[in-house]
C-alpha cells in the first residue's frame, strides 16, 4: 500500500493558524478518525504551532512545514518542521495541574496536552531544523481520555 502524504508550508505567524488546522482536519477526517480524536489532534497541532509562532523565530519571520502521512498499519503521522531556535518540547516540565487559581501558573498546558493526547511524540534536531512528529495509531479508534 502506498503511503499518502500531503504537506503545506506556512508563515510562522498566528495568522496561519486557522489555515493550518483546517489542512490537518481535512486530511485527518479523510483517513477516518472520529470527531473526538480529530478534535484532540487539532488541539495538539494548534499547541505545537502556536509555540513555534511565539518562540521559534524571535525578532524575525520564518516558516513552518506541516506534513501528514498515513502509514501501512493505519498510523497517522503529523510532522511539524521549523528552522527556528532549537527546542525539544519533550524536555519541558509538566505543569502542576493540582494547584488552585491563585497558585496556578499561566502556561505550559499546551505542551502537556500534546504529551498526554498523542499516542507517540518524537523530536529530533536535523539539519538545523526542529522536527516534531506526532504519531497516532489505530485509525478510526478513539482512545479514552482517562489515564
Amino acid at each position: 500500500m502506498d503511503d499518502n502524504v500531503q504537506s503545506i508550508i506556512v508563515l510562522a505567524h498566528l495568522s496561519s493558524l486557522q489555515k493550518s488546522v483546517a489542512f490537518i482536519s481535512s486530511f485527518t477526517r479523510n483517513v477516518g478518525f472520529d470527531s473526538r480524536r480529530l478534535s484532540e489532534i487539532e488541539l495538539c497541532v494548534e499547541e505545537v504551532l502556536v509555540n513555534i509562532f511565539n518562540y521559534a523565530y524571535p525578532g524575525e519571520s520564518g516558516e513552518v512545514k506541516i506534513s501528514c502521512r498515513t502509514g501501512p498499519e493505519g498510523t497517522l503521522t503529523i510532522e511539524i518542521v521549523d528552522s527556528g531556535i532549537p527546542f525539544n518540547i519533550l524536555s519541558s516540565d509538566d505543569p502542576d495541574i493540582s494547584l488552585n487559581i491563585d497558585e496556578r501558573h499561566i502556561g505550559g498546558l499546551g505542551i502537556y496536552f500534546v504529551k498526554q493526547l498523542m499516542d507517540r511524540v518524537e523530536y529530533r534536531r536535523e539539519n538545523n531544523k526542529n522536527v516534531l512528529s506526532m504519531i497516532n495509531k489505530s485509525v478510526g479508534v478513539s482512545r479514552p481520555v482517562d489515564k
Binding site: R36, S39, E40, L43, I97, L109, Y112, Q116, L117, V145
Partner: peptide, 10 residues
C-alpha cells in the same frame, strides 16, 4: 472536547 480539555488540564 471542551469537557475533556477541562479534565486533562485540572
Amino acid at each position: 472536547p471542551v469537557k475533556d480539555v477541562f479534565k486533562i488540564s485540572g
